[in-house]
Structures are given as C-alpha cells and as structure tokens.
Design a protein around this nucleic acid. Sequence first.
DNA 1: CCCCTTGCCATAGTTAGACTACGCAAGTTC
DNA 2: GAACTTGCGTAGTCTAACTATGGCAAGGGG
Lengths: 109, 109
Amino acid sequence: MQRDEIPPGTLYLLILKTLARSGEMHGYEIANSIQRISEDVLQVEEGSLYPALQRMLIKGWVTAKWGTTAGNRRARYYQLTAAGRKQLSIEMSQFERVIGAITRVIEAV
Amino acid sequence: MQRDEIPPGTLYLLILKTLARSGEMHGYEIANSIQRISEDVLQVEEGSLYPALQRMLIKGWVTAKWGTTAGNRRARYYQLTAAGRKQLSIEMSQFERVIGAITRVIEAV
DNA sequence: CCCCTTGCCATAGTTAGACTACGCAAGTTC
DNA sequence: GAACTTGCGTAGTCTAACTATGGCAAGGGG
C-alpha cells in the first residue's frame, strides 16, 4: 500500500556509490552502510538488495567473489568494475538533473 | 530498458504542486506546466498523466469537471481538494526526507 | 471542401524494480 | 539445544511509468 522510502531506480545509485567509497563489501555490509549513513531513513530490504546486486552483476557493473568475513562467515564480496564506475557517474548526473528539475517545480511560486 | 526521467511516485507530487500553484487546470495544461518549469527535463507522457489523474480522483485528492478551454476545446478541469492539499504537504516532507537521505549517502566521503 | 495539424482525453498491455514472506546455513550465547 | 545474529537467496505481488494506439473536435491551408 504505502510507497515507502527508496524510490525505484535509486537503489543502483546507492549501491554503486557505497562500493565506490568503500572498495570491497558484501551485501550485508552494503545495506548496513546505506542505512547508517542515511541515518536510518533508507532501509535496504534484503529482498531488494540481492536481486539488485544480481542485476548489477549481469549488467557488468560489479564483480563478485566468495570469501569469509571477520566474523568467520561466508559472504559474497562485490567490487565495482570500470563499467560500474562509469555508470555511477551517469546515475549521479542523472539524479542531480532530475532532482533539480523536480525541485524547480515544487518550489515554483 | 532505460529508466527515464520521472521517478515513480513523484508524479503525484508534481501534479499536486502544480494544481496548488495554479488553481484549476486541465491535464494538458498540467503536463505543459511541469515540462516548462522543469526546463524540459521532466516530460509527462499522456499515458502516465491521465492514469495518474484517475487514481488521484479515486483517492479524493482532486475533483474534476468538464469545461471549455480558451481555444474552444473541451477539457477536464482538475482542482485540489482539502485531502489533496494535505497529501501535498505529506509528499513534500517525504520527498525532502528521502532526497536528503540519498544525498547524504552519495555525498559521503 | 477536404486534409492536416494541434489540442485533449483515454485505455490496454508491457516492464522495471522494490516489496513481503519465506527458506537455508553457520556461528555465538546462554 | 534454543534463540539470536549474520549472511545469501528466491518466488510472488504490486505500483506506477511507459509505449502504442485510438478517438474526437477545432482551425488552417491547399
């Protein structure tokens, strides 16, 4: 019913940026990082996160390899590719462009 | 394929705000207004606009009545209801909250 | 007069993607 | 050994923006 929180399309941007900042992370870390930095406004559900990561793998924006966490659990570590970095810059400018335009409309007198 | 321009969910906000600013408008005017004020960044397709207006009617955010334009054509004029004004303020703060959070993430060091 | 463009409304069908709800496994804590 | 946490994953649902199409009326150009 209630459309909540993460606007469709921006999850890619959030993940790309998070990976760009932190290098290599596994899914759980990515979700926690986004949630923490957004001050709990954005909650990345697992049912959104993992399918998004799969799609990003297919698109070639990230690569993944299995490893072991500090807490001794197996986890899949994701890393940006060159295409991912390029996509990040595309999504960044797209985001600014669109949000700027929306802001103009909702602030117009 | 390519996700373009208007992020799902924000069309309501754009329409609500446009009606709040201009009082009474028909669909075509609403679309043109959004496009103009956004400096052509946001293009409201008819196939998005009219279904959205229908949903807003059902939700009780707007009322509609048939009339005639200055150019002598029949058109459906939409007007905000009290519920629509309330919804506008909800969507405004929601938008700011979420966009602020996303901005924190994509600007984090 | 007929056609063409523009204004204006509408719907059917497709698609992307975020969600809920669930399942699985391994480690830690009590 | 029960419960909790970490961690990955999928099946199915739903919203809403899109493409494509159609229709109709008014006005202008040939």
